[in-house]
């Protein structure tokens, strides 16, 4: 018994070491840099100077909210349809959905860029059809499309999981009590899959608000989302401190929004994230 408990005591230690080295220590650095100036003395200037970035913050927030909303609107019906198919079809669909996730996000974004580029597949095809020459790269739509394309599976999977876990008896009970199909969906299925929705929203919202390569590649260099700003600050040792301050503020903002979303899930504790 003693031996066993010893094993369990130390089983978590590799991860502990890992997280101290790569999560906790960097966080401490971020906080340290955020509150110091170049000479290493304490200052709030980095934080107060962030007001000049408020526009970037708002734009990033807007983009990720739009992307998340569209992901939800596409993802929920998709997950719902998937959960209604036979087990065999369902498994195939899940594999199809996961397939893009096996490829690096960066590569996917590059290939999307190749498709949308001037002279790329899509614009060539459209001009052949007689459309005027269209520019995709550099538009808001391209960036949002990139976010949706990259993160949609993260919306579908948690919703799909909560839909398949949903007990069929609740649906029967609802229809027994007078609900038609639409009412069953609205009164029972939707409320009971809120935890899945929250997970999905989180998993799309967080990476899209902090993305920089999607806006870089598909924004044609003209986009400056918060992720791009942070990246730029860290490319120059002079602005390290500002970069750390932006990162810190963004982390806090994300934590606040997660807390708000968790409130909605009503303590049902099914959070996947």
């Amino acid at each position: 018994m003693k031996h066993r408990s010893l094993f369990y005591k130390f089983a978590g230690s590799p991860y502990l070491v890992w997280s101290i080295m790569f999560i906790i220590a960097p966080l401490i650095f971020v906080v340290y840099f955020a509150f110091t100036d170049r000479n290493g003395s304490f200052t709030l200037e980095n934080i107060t100077s962030l007001s000049s970035y408020s526009e970037t913050f708002v734009m990033s927030l807007g983009f990720s909210l739009i992307a998340t909303t569209i992901c939800l609107l596409i993802g929920y019906p998709l997950a719902y349809c998937m959960s209604r198919t036979s087990e065999r079809t369902r498994n195939i669909l899940v594999v199809l959905l996961m397939l893009p996730m096996w490829i690096s996000l960066l590569i996917r974004t590059y290939s999307l860029m190749a498709l949308l580029d001037n002279g790329g597949l899509v614009s060539t095809f459209l001009t052949k059809l007689g459309f005027q020459k269209l520019t995709f790269i550099g538009t808001d739509a391209a960036v949002i499309l990139g976010m949706i394309y990259d993160f949609l599976p993260y919306m579908v999977l948690p919703i799909y999981t909560s839909l398949t876990k949903l007990d069929k008896r609740y649906l029967e009970a609802a229809s027994d009590l007078g609900c038609n199909g639409v009412q069953v969906l609205g009164k029972v299925i939707l409320p009971l899959t809120v935890p899945g929705i929250i997970s999905g929203v989180t998993m799309v919202f967080v990476p899209s608000i902090s993305t920089f390569y999607i806006s870089q590649k598909l924004g044609g260099g003209s986009f400056d989302l918060i992720g791009d700003t942070i990246e730029r600050q860290f490319q120059n040792s002079v602005t390290y401190h500002t970069g750390a301050a932006i990162s810190l503020v963004m982390m806090i903002l994300i934590l606040i929004s997660l807390a708000i979303m968790n409130k909605f899930s009503d303590n049902e504790g099914d959070m996947i994230v």
């Binding site: 008896r169 609740y170 029967e172 009970a173 027994d176 009590l177 038609n180 009503d266």
Partner: peptide
């Protein structure tokens, strides 16, 4: 006739009360 149009109600085996 679908269940919601029948003048019949059911008490399910494991109750199936709506947890939300």
């Amino acid at each position: 006739l679908p269940p919601h149009k029948r003048q019949v109600n059911t008490v399910f085996q494991k109750y199936a009360l709506f947890p939300h």
